[in-house]
Amino acid sequence: MGPLGLKIIYTLITLVICGVYGLLLGAFMAKTMARVQGRIGIPLHQPFVDIIKNYGKRTAISHGIMFYLGPVFRLTGGIGTLVFIPVIFGSEYFSNFSVAGDLLLVMYFIFFGQLGMALGASEGGHPYSPIGIARGLAQMCAFEVPFALAIIAIAIQYNTFSITEIVAAQQGGILSWTFFTNPFAVVAALLAMLGMNMYPPFSIVLAPQEIPIGPPTEYHSAYLGMLQSNRAIFAAAKLVLFMNLFFGGATNFPVLVLKTWAIYMCSVLVGAAFPRFRPEETIRFFLRWPTVIGIVGLLFAKYYLI
């Protein structure tokens, strides 16, 4: 049981915590939506039951090897993303495997699962899958712009791509968070996050009323269980990433929960209040104001913060 073994165990713990947390967040999101609509909403354990049920389905079909591997890619992508992010600042073991690469690795590893899932869903042969994926990709390359601008602003500000160092630079009081030092970049990134989380008004990928339900139309049973697990872990990973980059990271789990919950509420509340965009509208949206804000953030970092 060397340090590597210990690290693996801690990573597993992180995974479990983040998975559970992510599922709870999902339930919380649904509950909030329900309350906005005047309903009681699902019980908080509902996502857990759903996952168990999906894993417990008796039959499944497969359209081919890529279809079979699609959810595997997806979940690998989700877990990998989390594994490459240091979750708790200052903790050797909860920094997971962030030694393997910096922020750029995380940003590109996000695509790993999406790409694999896209290919798998495509092999399903259902026409809605490619339509949904095409929408998703289009939206992705649009929201990547403000997000990339924000990331670059951070890289300028802290002169590093290492997430640990970025968090370290934000220590020492609430005012040293990026949120306060470069609010433009953070706003751009949060707007991008709305697209990333795919809640309304950016839910054009799943869009149950238009292309029920997009890419995962053919996925079911344990495949669906994996996609749901990934959704939880991946959401947690993204939130932790945002927290690390913009909100000073966390030195322990309660702080982590508090901060990520707050970040999550942004997209939940926006999602509860807006109807859905059309695909071309979301592209235009992200390339308009969020991009402008992002550029302002970048220039602010470049000419004011340095």
Partner: peptide
């Protein structure tokens, strides 16, 4: 590099 690091083998 001056900005970041990457370990392809580990990834």
């Amino acid at each position: 590099t001056s900005l970041g690091y990457w370990n392809g083998f580990m990834v």
